[in-house]
Design a protein around this nucleic acid. Sequence first.
RNA 1: GUGGGUAUAGCCGAGAGGCCUAAGGCGCCAGGUUGUGGCCCUGGAGAUCGAGAGUUCAAAUCUCUCUACCCACCCCA
Length: 415
Amino acid sequence: MYQAPRGTLDRLPEDQAYWNYVEKTAADVAALYGYSRLDTPVFEDSGLFIRSVGEGTDIVEKEMYTFNDLGGNSVTLRPEGTAPVCRAYVEHGMQNLTQPVKLYYLMSIYRYERPQAGRLREFHQFGFEAIGESSALLDAEVIDMSCRFYRELGLKDLKLLVNSIGCQDCRKEYLKALREYYKVHVDELCDDCKKRLEKNTLRVLDCKKPGCKPLADNAPKSTDHLCDDCKAHFEQLTARLDQLGLDYKIDHRLVRGLDYYTRTVYEVQPLIEGGQSTIGGGGRYDGLIEELGGKPTQAVGFATGLERVILNLKRAGINPPEDTRKKVFVIWFGDEALRKAGHIMDVLHENGISAITSYSGRSMKAQMRQANSNGANYVIIIGDTEVAENKYTFKDMENSSQETVTEEELLEKLR
RNA sequence: GUGGGUAUAGCCGAGAGGCCUAAGGCGCCAGGUUGUGGCCCUGGAGAUCGAGAGUUCAAAUCUCUCUACCCACCCCA
């Protein structure tokens, strides 16, 4: 027996309502803020991700689906969406368009991780990127848009965490201060953090171990070490967030796992602890486009995991809107009736009315049961009597009322 | 990558060495007199008990290996 590869999921018909709901909401919110859709290939040149996400990150180090194609080129199934979008921006000369260029995507993402609830090897993201503008007002807009997406879906119990990790210049100063601070406390750190301190210093702040957490709480804050420009940027951001009335918390320990972030970083997390905490996150990445061979171009973006969004919808008891389209089931018995049933099926379909029928002359009871389990709102019954009178029996399943009507009357009722 | 748990029909789930040729429920199919659903009743189909090996006269029930899923860590969406 074959089964879906580890960490992958079949999206079954009964789940599709959730996906439609989430994807439609995403597209609506994107349109509201002036974002256009962009789709990129599932696989890219491996170098794109190594350059952008960063060589030392877990994603690049041990989570990428990388292989050589038959032409001998190293390609990688995309482990995130920002780099491909930036690649497309540069490749198609979008710096010549009016800036900022606003793009959104709904795409599958691939990471070779150990699967658990809310963590898959193939998952889906809704993300958006605003490229070519350095104003903190845009950061605020992106954050606002993220929050609106969750709000529109009905997701309430979420918290918004914001931080600034500075630019390339002032981050150096900050890292120096951090290392200085931790030098004295190395022995109190967990083994992982000892390694992090060398390799990816910022991540030490992220550790949840009881020994490391108090240290991180008292560690120097990045926001206290910002250069003047970064400081002004962060101040404008929070001022605008206040004006928007967004309920955010500045979290000095918020650090993100991808190397390209600068200045603003933020995450959205469910209030309920346990399981996978982050459902969405983003930030500014002012150096990425240049890193990928474009001109120096500032940008901000955000991405959210759709499986996690749906998980939270289910936990919160939020149901996607139901399909309100009326459905008709055509019942027939006898050869004459079969021909008449075929005719009315064609007419219904031509008129844009959802109609299904039986393919074998099952008993009336069986066909009625079939109609019921298919959720039919109306049933059309065709037997010897209807054939003789050239009419149809039209039954409303809701109140069980039925009457005999002509084809014209039937269509009138279904409009 | 590390640690722990679980694995019985499409789904839920009893079952703890011989009484299992595996209970029950949902779902599916057919009936409940001749052309009518949802409730109810009756009957039926559907399981090499996750896979493989071993212990035993005897294994769904014990042991080992593998695989998958779940939880925590790690990481992130």
